[in-house]
Simulated scan of single mutants.
Amino acid sequence: MQRWLHLRLDAPLMAFGGIAIDHVGPTRDFPSASALTGLFANAIGWRREQGSLHQALQDRLVFGALIVAQGRLLTDTQNAKLEANDRGWTTWGRPDERAGATYDSPHRRRRDYLADHDCRVVARLTPGEGPDLDALAAALERPARPLFIGRKPCLPSSPLFAGWVEAEDALGALKALALPGRALWPMTFDAPGSDLADLRNWVTGLHGGSRRVCEGRLP
């Protein structure tokens, strides 16, 4: 039997990200591997530029997720007129600014959120360098910085650390929660799976590949 960290992701608004195209930022129903890595790293107090630490944590992360209450999709459309000297804050180390000779057109962004979504996560770490499960649990209970679920406005409604469960694998850990709902877990050899593009290359900041997962309903 293995020990699994149980997280409750519950908030008025949350966003799990997805494949962004142009100014459109979608959200998945389930948290991605990169989103959970970022959540843990923020709780520990790592900086964004510590890519090797983030990458090592993501490489060790094994998890399953269960939707207890399906949230409704909420879309936030943002329009801002940027003048020639206006700058925008970014996460990649340099300000965003307008280019070209005309500034009459607005700067547009669209971001999707899940409203009143309740998702549970069971997670463990494979052996390797870095924090262990107890360190992650301690960081979630006393985080180095304020925690948010996906985007900074998405503050959790309750403590994220919800205890421990024991099971042989991620599906067994999800069943141990004794909650019905739609679930996602790593693919096993005796079940059909699909590719999920939710990995990040934390050193380059780009898409980092896919993993094989299974999806189904738990009674």
Rank of each mutant, 00 (worst) to 15 (best):
S32E: 12
I67L: 01
P12T: 08
G193A: 04
L13S: 04
L218Q: 11
L184G: 11
A69T: 12
I44W: 00
A20M: 09
T102K: 14
L9V: 05
A123W: 04
L36G: 12
V68R: 14
G130F: 04
R28F: 01
I149W: 05
R94V: 09
G208Q: 04
D22R: 15
V62G: 02
M14S: 15
R211G: 01
D76A: 03
P131A: 13
M187T: 13
D76F: 00
G193N: 12
L206G: 00
G51I: 02
L199G: 06
M187I: 06
R212P: 01
R60S: 06
P131S: 11
A11R: 10
F30I: 12
W4T: 09
T126W: 03
L9N: 08
Y113K: 06
D29I: 09
V203S: 09
R94K: 11
V24A: 10
G93I: 06
D112T: 07
R48N: 08
F161S: 07
L66W: 07
P131N: 15
R211D: 06
L66E: 10
D104G: 02
P12N: 08
D198Y: 04
R72A: 02
F16M: 04
L66G: 09
D112S: 08
G64I: 01
L177T: 13
D59Q: 15
G51A: 07
D116P: 01
P127F: 00
A33W: 15
A173I: 07
W46L: 15
E129L: 07
G93N: 11
V24C: 08
R151V: 00
G209V: 01
R98A: 12
A20E: 15
A20R: 15
R48L: 04
D169H: 15
A135E: 14
R72G: 05
G71F: 03
G128T: 12
G100R: 08
A144K: 11
A138K: 14
R182W: 12
L82W: 03
P159T: 10
A178F: 05
F161T: 08
L174S: 14
L53I: 02
D116V: 03
P26M: 11
D86L: 02
P106Q: 08
C154E: 07
C119N: 06
D104I: 06
R60A: 05
K152Y: 02
A43D: 06
H207L: 09
A138V: 04
P159D: 09
P127E: 06
G181V: 11
A167H: 08
W89T: 12
V203E: 15
R211P: 01
A197S: 14
R72Y: 00
H23F: 03
G51W: 03
A99H: 05
L136W: 08
D116Q: 14
A115F: 04
G208R: 07
D59H: 06
A135P: 02
A139E: 11
L184N: 10
T75V: 04
G150T: 11
T90R: 11
A99N: 05
G100I: 06
P26V: 11
M1V: 14
Q78F: 01
V68A: 15
A178M: 07
R145P: 00
V122D: 08
L206A: 13
L133T: 07
E141M: 13
G130D: 14
T126F: 00
P131E: 15
L171P: 01
M187P: 00
T126Y: 03
R111I: 14
L125N: 10
T91Q: 12
F189V: 10
L57Q: 11
A123Q: 13
G130C: 12
I149S: 06
P31R: 10
D195I: 04
T37P: 00
D76S: 02
S194L: 12
